[in-house]
Write a protein that binds this DNA or RNA. Structure first.
Length: 529
DNA sequence: CCTCGAGTTGCGAAC
DNA sequence: TGTTCGCAACTCGAG
C-alpha cells in the first residue's frame, strides 16, 4: 500500500519534537504539511494584530524550514469540515496526523474531522505533544479527577516519572509540490487577512520555531540564572523582561514544552543546587500543566456560570471602569503603564498580570474576570485558553486561590522594584517629567508641580477612577459575602444537586455580551471560499 | 561611658 | 507570589 499523508499543523508549529509529523513522514511517498486558516478563530477567538503577526511569522518560518527538506507548508483557507474532503480526494490521502488539542472547540472540531476521515477511508493518527504529559493519564493517575491543587499535581506527576523525551526531527519529508503552490497555498500577509501592519507594536518577540529555539538556547546558557530562578523574586516592571518570554512560543508550540523541560533538567544536572517547584523555572512548566489538566475536563472552564470550580460572585457590569482599565486610563500610573505595555507589545510580566487582574476584579473595580480574560486573550501574544481562564480565576480569587484579603496595592507593589518609576515613565510619557515623589500617586502632586512637569492631572493624565483604600475595604467585604454564600450552598447543595440536576438556581442569568472584534471577518470568510 | 531619640528591622495579627 | 499596623528589639550618632 502506498502511504500518502497530510500532517495538520494547528498548535505544535514546529519540526522538532513533533511525533505526529514523524508519523506522517514514516514510509510515506507524499507528505502534505498543512495549516488551515479556520475562520472560526477570526470570529470567535479574540486575536489582536500583534498575535496575528506572530502567527504569520511562525507560518513563514515553518515554510522556510520545510523548504530545507524540499517540502512546503500548505496554508489552506476554509473550515476543516469543507477543506478535508476535497484535500483527501485531490491528494489521494491515506493518512492524517495531528497533535492532540484539549480545548473545547478543538475537541469538537477534531472529532468531526476524524469521522469525516474515516468515511473517506483515511487513517487518523493523533499524538500528545503540546503538554508534558497526557492529561488523561494524569487524571487517571489521580483516581479519575483532575488534581485541583498544585501540590496534588506534583505528587501525581512524581508518581508518573519524568515526561517523555522529545522525539528527533524528521529525516526526510517527501512532498510533491504543486506548480501553483505559492498562489494556492502560500502564507498570507497581514494585508491578505485585512490586518493593518501599522497597528502592530515594536517587533520585540518575532514568531517562529527558529526564534523560539534561539531564545530557549540563550536562556539555557545562563546556567546560574536558571538554577536560581524564583518566580516571585523576578520583577514585573523592569524595562527588559526579567523572565524568559518563552510563553508565546509555548502557546503556539514553536518550542516544545518537553524540549524546554529536558533542557532545564540538563542545566540542573550540571549544577549542585537549583530551586524547586512551584517557584523554580521547571515549576512554571508545571503551572502550565496544572491548568491544562484541569481545563481538559472542566465544564465551562472559561466562564463563571455553570463552572463548578468557580465561586459565584456578583460582579458589577461597569463599562466605564472596564474601558478605563482596558485603555490604561485608571489614573493609577503603575496599572496604566502595564496595560499600555500589554496593548502595544503583547507581553507583560506574570506579576504585572497579577496587579492589573486584581485591580480589575476583587481589588478595585469589581468588574467580571471574564471581561479581563477577554482583553488578555486579544492582546497577549501568549494568550492560551487554559492558562488565561485559570489565571483569571486565580487572581479574582474565584478558584484555586482563596486569600481574597491579599490585595495588591496599585501604588506600593510597583514601588518595591522600581522606586524611581522608570517603567511608568517609559509607557506613560505624559508623566515622564513628574518628580519621583509623586510618580505613583500623581493626584497628590500640588498644581505647581504638575504645571512644571507639563502634565495636569485630570487633563493630560486622568484622575484616579476609584480611591483604592476605600474600595479595597468594601470589596473585601463583598468577597467575604460571596464566600459565605458558596459555603452555605455547598453544604446544602450536595443534597439539592441531585434534585435539580443543573446549576445552582437552575436558570442562567442574562447572557454576557461578547466583545466586538467582528469587522474583518466577512472578507476573511469570502477569501476562504 | 551612658542615655536618648530617631530610624530601622522583624514579626504577628487583621483585613 | 499582599498590605498595613503596632510593637519589640535593635542600631547609631549626638550630647
Amino acid at each position: 500500500m502506498t502511504k500518502r499523508s497530510i500532517h495538520w499543523f494547528r498548535k505544535g508549529l514546529r519540526l522538532h519534537d513533533n511525533p505526529a509529523l514523524l508519523a506522517a513522514c514514516e514510509n510515506a511517498v507524499d507528505v502534505k504539511p498543512i495549516f488551515i486558516l479556520d475562520p472560526w478563530f477570526a470570529s470567535n477567538a479574540r486575536v489582536g494584530v500583534n498575535r496575528w503577526r506572530f502567527l504569520l511569522q511562525t507560518l513563514q518560518n515553518l515554510d522556510q524550514s520545510l523548504k530545507k527538506y524540499n517540502s512546503r507548508l500548505h496554508v489552506v483557507r476554509g473550515t476543516p469540515g469543507e477543506v478535508f474532503p476535497e484535500l483527501f480526494k485531490q491528494w489521494e490521502t491515506t493518512h492524517l496526523t495531528f497533535e492532540l488539542d484539549i480545548e473545547p472547540y478543538a475537541k469538537v472540531r477534531d472529532a468531526a474531522v476524524k469521522s469525516l476521515a474515516e468515511k473517506s477511508g483515511v487513517e487518523v493518527m493523533t499524538f500528545v505533544s503540546h503538554t508534558l504529559y497526557d492529561t488523561d493519564k494524569v487524571i487517571k493517575a489521580n483516581g479519575g479527577n483532575p488534581p485541583l491543587t498544585y501540590q496534588r499535581l506534583q505528587t501525581v506527576l512524581s508518581k508518573m516519572g519524568a515526561p517523555p523525551k522529545p522525539v528527533e526531527g524528521p529525516r526526510e519529508i517527501k512532498t510533491k509540490i504543486a506548480a501553483n503552490h505559492d498562489t494556492e497555498y502560500g502564507v498570507p500577509t497581514m494585508a491578505d487577512l485585512g490586518k493593518d501592519d501599522a497597528e502592530c507594536g515594536p517587533l520585540l518577540f518575532p514568531g517562529g520555531e527558529t526564534e523560539g529555539l534561539k531564545r530557549l538556547d540563550t536562556m539555557m546558557k545562563k546556567t546560574n540564572w536558571v538554577c536560581k530562578f524564583e518566580k516571585p523574586k523576578t520583577e514585573p516592571n523592569t524595562l527588559a523582561p526579567s523572565t524568559t518570554v518563552l510563553s508565546p512560543y509555548l502557546k503556539f508550540g514553536c518550542v516544545s514544552a518537553r524540549t524546554f523541560y529536558h533542557e532545564v533538567q540538563k542545566v540542573y544536572s550540571q549544577n549542585k543546587n537549583h530551586t524547586q517547584p512551584p517557584t523554580s523555572l521547571l515549576g512554571q512548566l508545571f503551572w502550565r500543566e496544572f491548568y491544562y489538566v484541569i481545563a481538559s475536563v472542566s465544564p465551562n472552564f472559561d466562564k463563571m456560570e455553570g463552572n463548578p470550580i468557580c465561586t459565584q460572585v456578583d460582579w458589577d457590569d461597569n463599562t466605564e471602569y472596564l474601558n478605563a482599565w482596558r485603555e490604561g486610563k485608571t489614573g493609577y500610573p503603575f496599572i496604566d503603564a502595564i496595560m499600555v505595555q500589554l496593548k502595544t507589545e503583547g507581553w507583560i510580566h506574570h506579576l504585572a498580570r497579577h496587579a492589573v487582574a486584581c485591580f480589575l476584579t476583587r481589588g478595585d473595580l469589581w468588574c467580571h474576570w471574564e471581561e479581563g480574560m477577554n482583553v488578555f486573550e486579544e492582546w497577549l501574544l501568549d494568550a492560551d485558553w487554559c492558562l488565561n481562564a485559570g489565571n483569571w480565576m486565580w487572581l479574582s480569587a474565584s478558584a484555586f486561590f482563596h486569600q481574597y484579603f491579599r490585595v495588591y496595592s496599585p501604588i506600593v507593589f510597583g514601588k518595591k522594584t522600581d522606586k524611581d518609576g522608570n517603567y511608568i515613565r517609559k509607557y506613560l510619557p505624559q508623566l515622564k517629567n513628574f518628580p519621583t515623589q509623586y510618580i505613583y500617586e500623581p493626584w497628590t502632586a500640588p498644581l505647581k508641580v504638575q504645571e512644571k512637569a507639563g502634565c495636569i492631572i485630570g487633563k493630560d493624565y486622568p484622575k484616579r477612577v476609584v480611591e483604592h483604600d476605600k474600595v479595597r475595604e468594601k470589596n473585601i467585604k463583598r468577597m467575604a459575602e460571596a464566600y459565605k454564600k458558596r459555603k452555605e450552598s455547598s453544604s446544602k447543595g450536595i443534597t439539592e444537586k441531585r434534585k435539580t440536576e443543573g446549576s445552582e438556581d437552575g436558570t442562567p442569568k442574562k447572557k454576557r455580551k461578547t466583545g466586538g472584534n467582528n469587522s474583518k471577518i466577512t472578507d476573511f470568510v469570502k477569501k476562504s471560499k
